[in-house]
């Protein structure tokens, strides 16, 4: 009899064990937590505390020196000031253009390069290595080189344009409000497409040969084989690549910071460079913190939706 009741009770306990409350689960594993405690403390200090401190600062008016203990509570003043400023709108637009254009073209070029390097041909290894260079070169060094390439008086690109007769005088790539952002985006694409290429080359390795053969027998043209077999197969790795590119582009600082510092007249500022300038250039710690918090929220939201879209396929597979 006791066995029978025990059996009857087990489905119930199984169900309650399925959704236990977080704290009771933690208590059950308290020794495990003890083992990770040192790492946890380090992470609290280097990650959690700065996040907390940034959020705290964003609610204060700060003096333009490092005497942060003189800060004054300002409520949401920083946020309203930031959101209503015209610079905010320009910088946001720049950031969106920068991120979308860099991500899109890096991905498309990377995919194209991966596809052309997927076929066997003489010198494939050399081409692969050459196309990897932008990604392995230091971004700072590359930025300085590009700055010289773009230079209005001594730049190779401007000189070439004149030689080939495209223009009568060298183009002013970086000191012109109209061309500066796109010039920087070109550098960014040059740097990032090789990352996309490596990701897509890895993805291409996983496309089953038999599927391509089946499509060939079924009468698919090379384009149809790419569109119906290869590309759907690359969906997962494409999404990861685009996510990583977007995050990297949203947070990029090196290229604009070194090449223009956000100028001329804020025309090439994106969020991170602007935040940097507000904080360390103009000592407006509170406003910079408010910017950073908004960026943080946007990034978290983007990441959440993206990861959700990414894992939807996996859940369906598990069911």
């Amino acid at each position: 009899m006791s066995i029978a009741t025990g059996r009857a009770a087990s489905p119930l306990s199984a169900r309650s064990a399925k959704k236990p409350n977080v704290f009771s689960r933690m208590a059950a594993h308290r020794t495990d937590y003890l083992y990770v405690l040192p790492a946890l403390i380090v992470m609290m200090v280097v990650i959690a505390y700065p996040i907390y401190y940034t959020i705290e600062l964003s609610f204060y008016r700060t003096p333009p020196n490092l005497q942060l203990r003189d800060k004054v509570w300002a409520g949401f003043d920083n946020y309203t000031a930031v959101l209503s400023s015209s610079v905010f709108h320009e910088v946001t637009l720049n950031t969106v253009i920068w991120t979308v254009a860099s991500t899109f073209f890096s991905f498309v070029l990377g995919l194209g390069a991966a596809l052309s390097l997927h076929r066997e041909f003489i010198g494939r290894g050399l081409f692969r290595a050459l196309l990897m260079i932008p990604y392995v070169v230091s971004a700072v060094a590359a930025s300085y080189v590009w700055k010289w390439l773009y230079h209005s008086d001594f730049g190779v690109i401007g000189a070439l344009a004149v030689q080939l007769g495209f223009t009568s005088e060298p183009i002013n790539f970086l000191d012109n409000r109209q061309t500066v952002l796109s010039s920087l985006i070109v550098v960014n694409i040059w740097r990032e497409f090789s990352f996309a290429m490596v990701m897509m080359m890895a993805g291409l390795q996983t496309v089953p040969e038999q599927l391509l053969r089946a499509a060939q027998v079924d009468g698919a043209t090379p384009w149809n084989r790419f569109w119906h077999v290869t590309f759907p197969h690359l969906k997962g790795v494409s999404m990861v690549t685009v996510l990583l590119l977007m995050v990297a582009n949203f947070n990029s600082i090196i290229i604009p910071f070194i090449m223009t510092g956000g100028g001329p007249a804020d025309a090439s500022h994106i969020w991170i460079t602007h935040i940097y300038q507000l904080a360390f250039g103009r000592q407006q710690w509170g406003a910079a913190a408010a910017y950073a918090v908004i960026l943080f929220i946007v990034m978290m939201a983007l990441g959440y939706f993206y990861v959700k879209a990414l894992t939807r396929g996996d859940e369906a597979r598990q069911e």
Binding site: Q210, L211, R213, A214, A215, H228, V229, P232, H233, K235
Partner: peptide, 10 residues
Amino acid sequence: FQNYALYPNK
């Protein structure tokens, strides 16, 4: 084909 080679996304 041996592993059927069905188009997984269709």
